[in-house]
């Protein structure tokens, strides 16, 4: 039990650091909403190393903390919608046992973007921004794939980690 709490703290700290590193990368594609989603790497790892409940708690804790430190109330709402939808889809795909880490991570990236866009539509009461959907689908696929590669390498080296 003690080690569980310690590991949870380490995972939270890692997710926050990745959020920070991400905020330092000054990439601007001219289209809002596209970013690598480094913090999702930790969520993917947690999905494989922790139980589902802990993964959800980690996801919420990291979004709220990162939001207060690097963002604002708006970014918390958007990230929360994206993060929870993404984690739910990833959990379901993992349970089905028909997807590899890549597929799960890519679905996570795609649905992270979809969740945020849906909230944006609700907040703005506008369907016009569905215009972004194709771009966000493809970018989620690519970033999810990259995260999948890195997560695969990390999990290989974390084989002995038992939480």
């Amino acid at each position: 039990m003690k080690t569980r709490v310690a590991y949870f703290g380490v995972f939270t700290a890692l997710a926050l650091i990745f959020s920070y590193v991400e905020s330092l990368i000054p990439i601007n594609f001219g289209i809002p909403g596209i970013k690598l989603g480094l913090a999702n790497l930790i969520i993917v790892i947690a999905l494989y190393k922790m139980n589902i409940k802990e993964a959800y708690v980690l996801s919420v804790v990291r979004v709220v903390l990162a939001g207060f430190i690097f963002g604002n109330l708006f970014s918390i709402v958007y990230s929360l919608a994206g993060g929870l939808l993404s984690l739910t889809v990833m959990t379901l795909l993992k349970k089905s046992n028909k997807f590899s880490l890549f597929g799960i991570s890519m679905a996570g990236g795609v649905f992270h973007n979809v969740g945020q866009l849906i909230v944006a539509m609700v907040v703005l009461e506008s369907l016009n921004i569905a215009y972004y959907m194709p771009v966000l689908l493809i970018s989620g696929l690519i970033t999810g794939f990259v995260i999948g590669i890195v997560a695969g390498e990390m999990l290989k080296r974390l084989q002995n980690l038992r939480i």
Binding site: K98, F99, G103, P134, I138, L141
Partner: peptide
């Protein structure tokens, strides 16, 4: 780690949706 069949289907579906949306 290798891609499974369902992974490829997922990629195709998402790409198809994106292209469809653009069209």
């Amino acid at each position: 780690m290798k891609l499974k069949k369902m992974d490829l289907i997922l990629i195709l579906v998402v790409v198809a949706l994106a292209i469809g949306g653009m069209l």
